[in-house]
Design a protein around this nucleic acid. Structure first.
Lengths: 198, 198
DNA sequence: CCTGTTTTATGATTTAAGTCATAAAATGGA
DNA sequence: TCCATTTTATGACTTAAATCATAAAACAGG
């Protein structure tokens, strides 16, 4: 995360996106650095028959879409606002200049990319070899640490819909619903009026 | 990739690993930067019943295992020498000092992580939503660009075993074999005495 | 050159997750 | 407050890939 002051000093503009509005599309070439000021963004793919896979969900102060920006490659996924969102947009040239002048930011970028790579490594192994219960639990436990799940008297509230959990784990909604029910039976989590707690 | 001179200047030692020897194990905390001088390394996970998932394969001059090193987190996978291999090993403190003194290396690290994140994004979407033929082709086409597949008169030689393709795509050997046969029938690739060309 | 291991191969069978159909409950905008 | 949409839910059924069994071909080390 780069401070708003530094971003604005280098010419970043704050842009607004409505809920469900596309920020950039798979296949186009990147030209900006994006950092969320307020709201929530998902990056996702749609396969040939419209099925969605969510690569990641990003919140306040997080950046997204940097890898293709650094590599001059097409975006491998779409970025879509999950709710009304405001985003700092900084042209690549300005962003590179900012990095050059602030070597410590490079370390932050490295740590951020490392974090995301770590998540992807864990989930890739889960998705390709583990059964639904294992996958869902892993995602939830990851979410407790890295997404902004909040704790109350019932435990951590997993504020993902069943559909989102499916799109993040490669499972279908019905399978997620049944899996969560089973996990509740086994005492791994709680369902309190349809909300999931861990 | 950091030059051998710079690595050695900061105290890197060259260590030898036999084929199939473990370089580090899932779950332990990292303390070194690793860069391959010669040979081949895979990073992989084993699920509860011994099934393998290969996170990535690394060759000459490539580094691996940095994300947990930067994050002070446990390794999410094992690193194993695929053949007899020599590796530069540099203690974390020395590595961080090297980075500090050579800001341009940071950019290289960023690009490298970005590249790996890009691969993982593409494969994650494939593995979780696409059918076997699509997955296998995507892996092969990625391999042509980023692994060291060589071109001859028959096309690019895909020097992965069917088992490796399975472990990289989350499919079983038999499925990979049948899928590759189908892809050949459709003219997407060639099989010349059991070797796959694209 | 032999021999044990790995890799490729194929057919039969099983099964777990996907698909399809349907609906109640919850949510959110107008 | 009403109504359309989204989310959760459940049962029946289908299916694609996994599993199991078996074997031939290729390869690698002594």
């Amino acid at each position: 995360m780069i401070t708003p002051e530094l971003l604005e000093k280098h010419g970043a503009l704050k842009k607004s996106f409505d809920k469900n509005q596309v920020i950039f599309e798979e296949g186009i070439f990147p030209s900006n650095y994006f950092q969320i000021f307020l709201g929530e963004v998902k990056m996702s793919n749609y396969n040939d028959d419209g099925r969605e896979f969510i690569q990641g969900i990003f919140y306040k102060n997080q950046s997204f879409g940097e890898p293709p920006l650094f590599l001059n490659q097409k975006y491998p996924a779409n970025a879509i606002a999950v709710e009304d969102t405001e985003i700092f947009v900084l042209p690549k040239a300005n962003f590179m200049k900012l990095l050059e002048e602030n070597p410590k930011i490079s370390i932050k970028i490295i740590e951020n990319l490392a974090q995301r790579l770590y998540y992807k490594s864990v989930m890739a192994a889960e998705i390709s070899t583990q059964e639904p219960e294992h996958r869902v639990l892993k995602l939830i436990d990851h979410g407790i640490v890295y997404f902004n799940f909040k704790k109350d008297k019932n435990g951590y509230l997993i504020n993902f819909t069943r559909q989102q959990i499916g799109d993040l784990t490669g499972l279908r909604v019905e399978t997620v619903i049944r899996t969560i029910k089973n996990l509740e039976k086994k005492g791994e989590l709680k369902i309190i009026n349809r909300k999931v707690y861990r």
